[in-house]
Amino acid sequence: MKVFLATLRRDLLVAIRTGSETLNPLVFLVLVGVIFALVLGNDHAARELTGIPVVWTTALFANMLALEGLFRREQDEGTLATILVANESALPATVAKLIAHWLLTGLPISVLAPLIGLGFGLSFETLGILSGTLLIGTPILTLVGAIGAALVVGLGRGGVLLTLLVLPLFVPVLLLGIGTCQQFQFNAEYIPPLLGLLAILSGAITAIPISIAPILRFSQDQ
C-alpha cells in the first residue's frame, strides 16, 4: 500500500507540474466536440443522432492522446528501470500509475463529455448514461492502452505503432459504449450492451494490471 500511495501521489504531482501536457486531451475533447456541434448547426435531428457517437469517439481519441506518455517520461528519466528492478514493488507501482492516468484523463473526460453532449441537444437522462458508460469505458481504454504503451516504450517514439496496436482493441468498447447510449436514447433494450461493457471492464481489471510489469520488463530488453 505504501508503494501504491507513494507512486500515485508522485504521478499526480508530476501531472500537476506538467500543466498543459496533462490538459491537452481535455482541450482536444472540448474543441472537437464544439466544432462538431457548430458544424451541425440547427439541424436538431442530425445533432441528436450524431451526438453520442461524436462524443464517445472524441473521448476515445482524447484518451489515446495521453497514452503514449503513460510510461514515456519514466523511461526517459530512468525511474521505470528503478521500478522494475524493485521486483516486489513493480506491481503496486504500475497499478498506481494506471489509476493516476485514469484519474487524469478518463475521469475528467467522463465528467466533461456530458457538457459537450449538451451542445448536441441530448436529454439529461441520455447525458447521464453517456457519462456512466464513459466511467465504465475509460478505465478499459486506460488498461488496454497500457498494454500497447508498455510494449512500445522501449522503441523510442512509438506513437504511430501504439495507435495501430490499440485502436482495433478499442473498437468493441466504442461500439458497446455508443450502443448502450443509443439504445437508451431510443427507448430500446440497453442492458445487454451495458453488461458487455461491464464484462470487458471486469476482465480487464482482473488480467491487465498484473501483466503490465512483465510487459515493461520485456520491452526494456528490446
Binding site: 508503494v3 507513494a6 525511474t79
Partner: peptide, 18 residues
C-alpha cells in the same frame, strides 16, 4: 532515476517508499 518535475526531497521520499 529521478523525476525532473519533483524536488530532491520528493524523489527521495518516493525512492524510500519504493
Amino acid at each position: 532515476g529521478l523525476a525532473r518535475l519533483l524536488t530532491v526531497r520528493e524523489n527521495i521520499r518516493w525512492s524510500i517508499a519504493l
